[in-house]
Simulated assay, not measured.
Amino acid sequence: MLKSLTPKDLDGGVNLLDIGCSGAPDEKWRPIRRLVNYIGFDPNQAECERLDAEPREFLSTRHLPYALAGEDGERELFKTKSIYCYSLLEPKHEWLERFSYADLFEVEGTIPVTVKAMSNVAELAAFDADVVKVDSQGLDMEILRNGRDIVSRAFYVETEPGFVEHYRGENTFCQVAGLMGELGYLLFGLTLCGVPRKGPFAKRKGKTQVMWGQNVWLKDYVALEAEGRAGTLTRAKALKALLLCAVEGVPDFGYELAVCFRGKGLLSGQELESLSSESAWNLSE
């Protein structure tokens, strides 16, 4: 059932927002790439034009030259030695200097950039996001909180907050987890990332202090429905939720949602039965 879904079944496809879109999209999206409408954000206009020119197999692709933050305005972007450490927040050097990757955060200058709150991006007015991925170098909470109306309608949210402050004023995992809980999301993915300290063990492989994590949050429609907070659920939204459970590899949660959706008349009995085997959730080509 899930492998045969078309954009028409999904009300035009799965809508994915990629905030901080440097690098290639994650390979996990490959099995459903022809169902995905992709919008990426990068504050560099030239980079957006370059990315738009690259061949992609998504249903549609667009890159917007905005830096997202908590509110509209002008901010300074800290340009660091590594482009992947650029941030609207200043690196916390006295902390970072203790670790082997401190040089990546060395500030080489600042540039003024125009920033927008997610909710105020005109191009998103008609884009009902199903997936929101945030890789913002310390601004996850600020972006999510001020894009709450968009995030609350999504099913799948990916964040990458630190467990400690790498930047001054950085939002940490505990803050992000609190907001996601308020919005009815559950944690389904937690990839922990650590870095060794400077010194004779700087290149040692093994256990180090956990510095940040890559997190996946899925909306708990079962609990929200019981609380009367699920909002208006359509068949297309239900199918997209099930498809995204397959992408994340969580058929147990997907089937629980399917039972809930069947109770609301969004799935047929035959469709529910077809989802009772693990193979039904395998999207591999």
Rank of each mutant, 00 (worst) to 15 (best):
E108M: 11
D220V: 02
N146K: 11
Y101M: 13
E165C: 07
L179G: 10
I143V: 14
G184A: 04
F201Q: 14
D128N: 09
F105Y: 13
C193W: 08
D149W: 10
Y156L: 05
G147F: 03
Q209N: 12
L187V: 11
E158I: 09
D128V: 01
S136R: 11
A125G: 08
K198Q: 13
A177S: 11
F155N: 05
G213I: 05
R145A: 15
E94G: 02
G184M: 00
D135W: 09
N215Y: 14
F188N: 08
L190V: 10
L89W: 04
A154E: 07
P200K: 15
W217I: 01
K203Y: 12
V157M: 05
T159Q: 08
V134M: 04
Y185H: 03
K207N: 12
G138D: 07
W95V: 11
G178A: 12
V216W: 04
A202E: 15
S136A: 15
G138N: 09
V121A: 05
S100D: 04
L179H: 07
N171Q: 04
G194K: 04
Y156A: 00
N215V: 13
V134C: 14
D130K: 00
L179Y: 00
G169H: 10
P196M: 03
S136W: 02
C174N: 14
V216N: 09
T172V: 15
V157W: 02
V157Q: 02
M180W: 03
P200D: 06
G109A: 10
G199A: 10
A117S: 15
D149M: 10
G162N: 00
N120E: 14
F201R: 14
G169Q: 07
R98K: 15
M211L: 08
S119H: 06
E225W: 09
L144I: 13
A202Y: 07
W217Y: 12
D135N: 12
V115S: 05
A129W: 02
E225K: 05
Q175Y: 06
A117F: 09
D128W: 01
L139K: 11
F173R: 08
E123C: 04
L190D: 13
A117V: 03
G109P: 05
G169L: 08
P161F: 03
S100T: 08
